[in-house]
Amino acid sequence: MSIPTILSARRNAVALLSLAAVLLATAGADAGTCPTDKVLTMPRKIEEAPDVGIKRETLSIVNLTGWRGVGDLRLRTRRLTVAVGGIVPTHQHDDRPSIVYVVKGEIIEHSAFCSVPILHREGDWTPEFGKGHAHWWENKTNQPVVLTSSDVVPPDMLDDPDM
């Protein structure tokens, strides 16, 4: 497969996951989102938060290679358990579409596109993708928080614990 074909296939996979996230976002409630009057049109610089107290478990990986012209990409679902006082470190989603679901507990997100922290509660989900989309999460409660995260990644990112 040629480089332009691989790049085109990768854009197609990213576009599909992005479309799914947008469709889900328009169907859900405003819970777990940035208040309308606090949404930023340009990303702000956010703190570089460290990785603290996160247990990451890969639940499943689907090889998307060749599906509808997709290049060498994987659809991965993981369970993240965020300890009391735990921090999901600052990371970006410029080129890694993801959807996070809060299975148990509540957690605070600090987003480059929101001027205030965002509270996510059990049952909330959030799409993560786009130019400048950077954020970090923290558990300020007295109980562990459980999240599931599904993302599209190239195979070399599968072994990176921070991704």
Rank of each mutant, 00 (worst) to 15 (best):
G71W: 01
C34E: 09
L59G: 03
W67R: 09
M42Q: 15
A15W: 01
L17I: 06
T5W: 03
E57R: 13
D72E: 15
T41N: 10
G32K: 04
G105W: 07
D51F: 07
L40R: 11
L73H: 04
P89N: 14
G28M: 12
I99C: 11
E48S: 14
R11W: 02
V14R: 05
R96L: 10
S18C: 08
E48G: 04
Q92A: 15
P35G: 09
R76G: 00
T26R: 14
T65A: 14
A29F: 04
L73C: 10
I107H: 05
E57D: 14
S18D: 12
S8L: 12
R44V: 11
A20G: 14
S8T: 13
I46R: 05
L19N: 08
E109Q: 12
L23T: 08
V14E: 10
E109V: 03
S18M: 08
I61N: 08
N63E: 15
V70K: 00
A20L: 15
S60D: 08
G66S: 10
R56C: 06
L16G: 12
H93G: 09
I87S: 01
T81Q: 10
A29Y: 02
L80V: 02
P50F: 08
V82W: 03
Q92V: 05
G69H: 06
S8C: 04
A49N: 07
I6V: 12
A13F: 01
V84E: 09
D95R: 13
A25N: 14
V62Q: 13
D51K: 05
T77V: 15
E106F: 04
S18I: 01
L17K: 02
R78L: 07
I61H: 02
T36H: 05
D30G: 15
L17T: 01
L16M: 13
G66I: 08
R44N: 09
K45T: 14
E106P: 00
T36G: 05
I108L: 11
V22R: 12
D51A: 14
K38Q: 15
V82H: 05
I46A: 05
H93F: 11
E47R: 13
P97W: 07
G71T: 00
V102A: 06
L59D: 02
M42T: 15
I6C: 01
K55R: 14
E106G: 02
R79W: 03
G86T: 01
I46C: 07
P43T: 10
V84H: 03
L24F: 10
P4M: 06
G53C: 07
T81G: 06
G28A: 15
P50V: 07
I46G: 04
D51R: 11
V100L: 12
A25R: 12
S8W: 05
P4V: 07
E109D: 12
G66M: 10
T26N: 11
G69D: 10
G53Y: 01
E57W: 00
I61S: 12
T58Y: 05
A29G: 15
A20W: 10
L17P: 00
I87E: 00
L17D: 00
I46Q: 07
A13T: 04
A29L: 10
G66V: 09
R74P: 00
